[in-house]
Write a protein that binds this DNA or RNA. Structure first.
Lengths: 159, 159
DNA sequence: CCTATTCATTGGCGATGCCAGCGATTGGTA
DNA sequence: TACCAATCGCTGGCATCGCCAATGAATAGG
């Protein structure tokens, strides 16, 4: 029985959704702080990941992948572009589209971000063994894939 | 390899903080919907839990317990009070304080809320066995208690 | 051609979390 | 007793975030 056990009502401590919300808020703060030192927010980091891993893509596809509002994506991209972390080129074959490409500077910053986050997680999950963290991640990911698969069935697959 | 595995970059799928944030957002939506049918938000539910489990308390202590901004607490309580789910009585021995008490109607609604959430979790965590959900909760709670204990050491214990 | 659709962009709305300041009240101290 | 500091609840403001509607440019289909 730790101190915080006495603080929170048992009805909340035993509710998975509540505990998850709390932990996510903690995790969010923790990671957002680190990324902020590089001038990135979480979505911008995710965008760089996308472009780095899947190569150049148009905004619509990035938004679909990350489940971002296309309007919000624009402002994130604006900052990434002015920081020269990405390029935004009109598709000559469909001039409505903007082809997003991560720059070398973007890749370098992404590497720094990944390093920062790699260092942040052990600190965030202090008290849990590495295997337990992986277990936590796997369980959470299991729930997620289940739901994203459902969303797929309901509204059809993005490109 | 499920469909969503192909959607998200591996760099994000393997990052615990990212997966947790996603799951928490999903969980939040899921639970907030249910509670909204009772006219409650998550904080109001938590407040009712507090008053039900620990008995009458002043606003300062409830805010400390739930880590809520005292200003925000006021507006939550206003709605709870007009709905007659709680009573707000001035402490005769310290007229600055308001003593919060859950009413019988509040307890009835809290029971309904708990039932709703009990039903919501299996649906939210479909695909995970009950034991796995508990494992997920326990792991998350472990990280949380660790951090709340740290916060205690740094800024002293609330009453 | 003319119409419908797609894509990026802009703007606004509501909810949330956080912080500063204000009155009322109390406690401590000279 | 008189004064000063601290506490408690309350108000208001600000920044962020996710979500949605509307617009303009460009394309696709009949």
């Amino acid at each position: 029985m730790t101190v915080s056990d006495a603080l929170l009502p048992a009805a909340l401590r035993h509710r998975t959704s509540f505990v998850l919300a709390r932990l996510a808020a903690l995790s969010r703060m923790h990671c957002a702080e680190r990324l902020a030192t590089l001038g990135l927010n979480q979505h911008q980091h995710a965008i760089l990941c996308c472009l780095d891993e899947f190569g150049p893509a148009i905004q619509r596809d990035v938004a679909a992948r990350l489940d971002l509002d296309s309007g919000d994506l624009v402002s994130f991209l604006d900052r990434l572009q002015t920081a020269e972390l990405i390029r935004r080129d009109r598709d000559p074959r469909d001039r409505r589209r903007q082809i997003l490409t991560i720059t070398q500077a973007g890749q370098r910053l992404l590497n720094q971000a990944e390093t920062l986050l790699d260092e942040a997680e052990p600190e965030l999950f202090a008290g849990l063994a590495a295997a337990e963290v992986e277990q936590l991640r796997a369980l959470a990911a299991g729930v997620l894939t289940r739901h994203t698969a459902q969303a797929w069935r309901h509204q059809g697959a993005p490109a």
